[in-house]
Design a protein around this nucleic acid. Structure first.
Lengths: 199, 199, 199, 199
DNA sequence: AACTAAACGAGACGGTACGTCGTGTCTTTCG
DNA sequence: CGAAAGACACGACGTACCGTCTCGTTTAGTT
C-alpha cells in the first residue's frame, strides 16, 4: 500500500513529534507572527531540511500539530430533532475551538490561508470542509424533516453557523460559548418548531 | 491643531498618492503575500523612510489605500422597516465588498489583523467596528420596533450578518451577492414580520 | 596478506571504477569547484557511504582517478649525460602533465593540498615526492659527474625545475612544452658543459 | 572622477576595516579552509550583505585584507648590476612573503585561484602580474646589458624565479630565505658575469 | 536674503530568516 | 557484510526584506 517497504532509513517518528510539539510551544509563547521554520528546528533539535522534507510550509506544520495534539474528530449526533442535534454539535465544537490555545491557532491558520493561496486550498479541503460536511449531515437531515427556516438553503445555514463562530474568533473576539450556541439554535431551529406548534 | 504650521517642508501629497497607488497595483499583481515595503518604495519611486514615517506597517498602507480609493462610506437607510433597511444595507455592502479587488484586499487585511496584534486593534477600531456600528443603528431601531427574531440579542444579529459575509469571503469563496442578501433578510427580518401578521 | 579471504561481501570493483569515471567526467564538465561527493554518488549510481568507506576526501578520489586513468609512471632515463637525461625526463613529464585534462586536475589537487592539510600531506608524499625523487636520481648522478651548476645544491635544482613547471601551470597558464624544456636544459645543464669546453 | 558624490549613505570605513581584520584573525586561527563569510560577519559585527556588497568572494576579502595590512609594494632597485638588483629584490620579496602569516595567506589565495576561475583572473591580474612586472623591469634591464644566461628568454627567467619561490611555498614547505636567494642569484646572474670576465 | 527645520530620494547598515546544498553519519533493505 | 537508498543533524550558502541610519537635496517658514 502506501506503507510499502522501501530501502533507506525510515522517517523518524521522534523527530516528527518533536517538531509538532516545538511548533505548538512556540506559537503559545510568542504567537504565530513570530513562528519561523528556523525556530522550530532549533527548539526541536532537528535540521531545517527535515521540516522542509515533510511539510510545505510552517502553516502546514501548525495544522498538523493541531490535528495531532487536539483530536479534531467531530461527533455527528442524531437525536431525532435538529434543535437537539445542533445544540450538541455546537456545544462540542465550541468546547474544542473556542478556548485560547486552539482558538489562537485556528485564527492564525485561517489568516495564513488568506495570504498563502496554496495553503489556503489545503486548509479548506483538509479542515474547513470536513467540519462543514459534518454539520452538513445534520442540516440535510433537518431539511428532509422540514425543520429548517423557510427560504434559507441548507448551504446558507452552514454559512451562518460557521460564519458567526469565525466572526467572533476573528473580529469581535467575544467568547464563543454556550450562550452563542443557544442563540444560534433559537435562530435556526426554533422557528420551524414554533411555527409547527402554532399550526 | 494637528495642522499647525511648522517650519520645514510639507508632506508630499504626490508621494502619498504614489505610495497608495503602487500598493494597490502590487497587491493586484502578485497578492498580499508578495507585498513588501521595499517593493512599494521601488514601484512608487519613494524612499523607504517616507513610508515608515507615515504608516506603521504595510497593512496600514494597504488599508489607507483601500479607504482612499474606494469610498467605504456606509449609507444608513431608514425606510421604516428592518426588512427594507437590512436589504438595502446588505445590497450596498455586498456591492462594494463582494467583488474581486476589494474583496481580496479585505481578506488580506483581516488575515494580517490576526497575525499582527497591533494592526489588529487598528483594523477592528477603524474598519470593522465602524461598519458594525452602522448596521447596529438599524438593528437597534428594529429592536425597538420588535422586528428582531425572538431570543437573539442585537449583538448576535450583527455577528450573524457580518459572520456570514466574512465566512463566504474567507472560507467558502462563494459569491457574496444579492442571493445571500435575500436569504439573510428572510432569516433575520421575515420571521418577526410574518409572526406579527399571523397574530 | 591484504588479499586474505575475509568474511563478507567483497569490494565491488565495478563501483570503484564507476566512481573514478564519474569523478573525471564531472571535473571535466564543471570544474573541480563544482565537484561534490553527492554528485559523484549520483552520477555513478553509488551510495555515498561507498565513497566515504574507501576514500577520505573528494580530492583523494580525484587523485585515485588520475592515477588509475593516466599512467603516471616516470621513466628514469640514464643516457650518460645530465643534459640528455634531463631533456628526456622533461619531455615525458611535460607530455603527460602539460595538457588540458591532466593539467586541470593537477592544478585542482595542488590547490586542495593547500586548503586541506591532511590531503596536503598525502598529496606531497604520494605524488609530489615520488616525481621529485625520480628527478632526484638524475640530479644526484649529475652531481657526482660534476655536471650541475656551481653553487646550486641538488635540492634547489629540483625546486627550479618543478617550480618552473608548476608556476606555469598555476600562475601564468603559458604552455608547458618542449620550448620550456629546452630552456631549462640550457639553464641547468649547458653551463657546466660549455665552461668545460672553454677550458 | 571615481569619487563622484552620489546620493545615499557612504560606505562605512569602520565596517570595512573590521571585516578585513576579522578575516585575517580567522585565517590565522583556523586556516583558510575554515574561513566562511558567515564567520567573518559574526566576528566583525557586520551584516553578511555588507560583505557581499563589496567583495565578490571570501578570497577577494582575504586578498584585500592582505594588501591593506601588509604593504605589498615592491621596491624596484637599480644598482647597476643584475646580480645586485636581483639579490635585493629577492631579499625584500622573501622577507615579506616567506614568513608564516603572509605565506599561509598566499598559499590559500593561489589555491583558491585554481578552484574559482573568476577569482583566478583577478588574482593573476591584481597580484601575480604586478609582482612579475616588477621583476620584469630588472630582467629587461639585465637583458639589455647582456647579463642574462644565454639561451633563456627573459620571461622564462621570471618563471624560474617565481616558480622556485612558489614551489617551496606550495610543495616542499622548505624555508624561502636568503639561502635560496643566493642560489638563484648564482644560477641566473653569475654565469653571464663570470663569462664576461673570462673574455 | 540668510537661516533653520523638516521631508525627500537614495542607499548603506546590522540583522533575521529564508529555502537550498553539501557534509558526514546512521538506518533499512536487498543481494 | 557490502552496497543502494535515503533520512538525519548540522552548517554555510547567497538572497530578500526588515527597520534604522546617514547622506545631499529640496522646500517652507522664520529671522
Amino acid at each position: 500500500m502506501t506503507d510499502q517497504s522501501r530501502p533507506g532509513r525510515k522517517r523518524s517518528e521522534q523527530s516528527r513529534l518533536a517538531i509538532l510539539a516545538a511548533t505548538l510551544e512556540l506559537v503559545a509563547e510568542s504567537g504565530y507572527g513570530a513562528l519561523t521554520i528556523e525556530g522550530i528546528a532549533a527548539r526541536s533539535g532537528v535540521g531545517k531540511q527535515t521540516i522542509y522534507r515533510w511539510w510545505p510550509s510552517k502553516a502546514d506544520v501548525l495544522l498538523d500539530a493541531l490535528a495531532t495534539k487536539a483530536d479534531l474528530q467531530i461527533p455527528i449526533p442524531d437525536q431525532g430533532s435538529f434543535r437537539a442535534d445542533l445544540a450538541r454539535f455546537l456545544d462540542s465544537t465550541f468546547e474544542l475551538g473556542g478556548k485560547s490555545p486552539v482558538a489562537d491557532t485556528l485564527r492564525a491558520l485561517m489568516a495564513q490561508a488568506q495570504i498563502d493561496p496554496e495553503f489556503g486550498h489545503r486548509f479548506r479541503a483538509d479542515f474547513l470542509l470536513r467540519r462543514r460536511d459534518a454539520l452538513g449531515t445534520l442540516v440535510d437531515r433537518a431539511g428532509e424533516r422540514g425543520e429548517l427556516p423557510a427560504g434559507v438553503p441548507p448551504g446558507t445555514v452552514l454559512d451562518v453557523v460557521f460564519g458567526t463562530l469565525w466572526y467572533r474568533l476573528l473580529a469581535t473576539r467575544e467568547p464563543v460559548d454556550r450562550g452563542l450556541a443557544g442563540e444560534l439554535v433559537t435562530l435556526l431551529a426554533d422557528h420551524g418548531a414554533s411555527t409547527a406548534e402554532i399550526r
